[in-house]
């Protein structure tokens, strides 16, 4: 599909000789496609930029979109598709806007400005450019999704201090392995930051638990113990209790309570004992 140096030269010639016509027609076709969602002036600027990059790349011997001389062209394409992805244009719109250049080439062929054989060859290059744009578009969108997932994670995993020396994590929603890990790391860090020796992991809002997630919770409890803190798990639903038993997960000597309130009461009673223990000494 690659162009020969000669063909590349002819492409530059064509784009330079009919510069105004190519840019105008290209802009017109894309504008019709987008139905006014991008101003004619802005669109024209972007098309001009692409047109210029193609000529520059062609002058250096543009044979393939992946070749070294196409570096700047790739950058222009990437910038365009990133911009469009962020502005909410669809992948099809982004790619088809490049394919519009083919229509321009056909029009030029109809009036005899370019040979049909060259249209086919140049068309191949345009296809490559379109695919490259499409790929950048997808990457940009994936980046956006990853960012949003991270933001969601931040929002959905609060670790709160609910009493002097007691922190709680009310877990809500589906827990996958990655999220469970983040929550657990944050919980342990909060224990250190607040100097709290008690933690309550409340899973009332968790619809299901699989082996991996259960393992994460168990590991967190063990890790907290290594750090000198004690974890209680509250709000285990009947289905989850069944799953835990069915999966053969050993909860061992980990304290479990029916509700967050029960768990807090349990902790307060524990710390109450500690306080009561200190008293006789003061009297003595």
């Amino acid at each position: 599909m690659a162009l020969t140096m000669e063909e590349s030269g002819r492409l530059v010639g064509l784009l330079t000789t009919h510069a105004e016509r190519v840019v105008q027609r290209w802009t017109d076709i894309v504008a019709a496609l987008l139905r006014g969602r991008l101003s004619q002036a802005e669109l024209r600027l972007q098309v001009q930029e692409l047109h210029r990059s193609m000529i520059d790349a062609g002058a250096e011997g543009l044979t393939d979109i992946q070749s070294g001389s196409a570096g700047e062209l790739r950058a222009s394409l990437a910038e365009l598709s990133r911009g469009w992805a962020r502005q909410g244009f669809s992948a099809t719109e982004t790619a088809v806007s490049l394919y519009a250049l083919k229509d321009v080439l056909f029009e030029l062929a109809e009036t005899g400005e370019v040979e049909l054989r060259d249209v086919v060859v140049f068309g191949g290059l345009v296809d490559q450019m379109g695919l490259f744009t499409f790929e950048t578009y997808v990457q940009t969108r994936e980046g956006l999704i990853a960012d949003q997932a991270e933001q969601l994670l931040e929002l959905s995993t609060p670790v709160v201090k609910i009493w002097d020396g007691v922190v709680a994590v009310p877990l809500v929603g589906t827990l996958d392995s990655a999220r469970a890990q983040v929550v657990m790391e944050r919980l342990l860090q909060t224990l250190v930051d607040t100097g709290s020796p008690h933690a309550i992991i409340d899973i009332t809002g968790v619809p299901a638990v699989d082996t991996q997630v259960a393992q994460h919770i168990l590991k967190t409890v063990v890790a907290a113990r290594l750090m000198g803190a004690d974890c209680i798990i509250s709000g285990i639903r009947p289905q989850i209790a069944q799953t835990i038993v069915a999966l053969g997960i050993e909860f061992g000597d980990i304290a479990t309570k029916a509700s967050l309130a029960d768990a807090l009461r349990h902790v307060l009673r524990l710390t109450g004992i500690e306080a009561a223990r200190r008293q006789p000494r003061r009297e003595a």
Partner: peptide, 9 residues
């Protein structure tokens, strides 16, 4: 440290 405890587990 938390990271140390997680690693030990």
């Amino acid at each position: 440290r938390p990271a140390v405890a997680i690693t030990l587990v």
